[in-house]
Design a protein around this nucleic acid. Structure first.
Length: 111
DNA sequence: ATTGTGACTGGTT
DNA sequence: TAACCAGCCACAA
């Protein structure tokens, strides 16, 4: 299983209504300091339809696409639909950050 | 084997 | 706040 596949797998575990930072996903995937690689792995996913890429934002709680781009608006809309509140273009991580429990991880991650 | 790249991050100005 | 910037790293070419 490649690093990208691990990143994609972990991303699919993020529940609706929650968000995770690129760095957080990298850590959970066993790839510390590989936050930048996360963005690439998401973009490279073979089955985008089942990938909740919109639940991944940066460590500042902001969407990492240019603020006037189509992807930015799509991500914002999807999060809004899931109940994630965005104030001044920023998500309150203390409130919406995904906090996976040991069970979820050990049962779902094959590594 | 080497190099360029980016939907990052955290510290410093 | 906001801009800069060096550090980081798997992947593709």
């Amino acid at each position: 299983m490649t690093s990208n596949e691990r990143i994609q797998l972990v991303t699919r575990l993020i529940p609706a209504g929650c968000v995770a930072s690129y760095g957080q996903i990298a850590d959970l995937a066993g790839l510390p300091n590989a936050a930048r690689q996360v963005s690439k792995a998401l973009k490279a996913d073979k089955d985008p339809e089942t990938l909740p890429w919109h639940r991944v934002i940066n460590a500042q709680g902001r969407i990492s696409f240019p603020k006037d781009s189509a992807p930015y608006r799509l991500q914002m809309e999807r999060l809004r639909v899931e109940g994630v509140i965005i104030n001044n273009g920023k998500v309150d991580l203390r409130q919406f950050r995904w906090q996976p429990d040991m069970a979820t991880l050990t049962l779902s991650i094959p590594f």
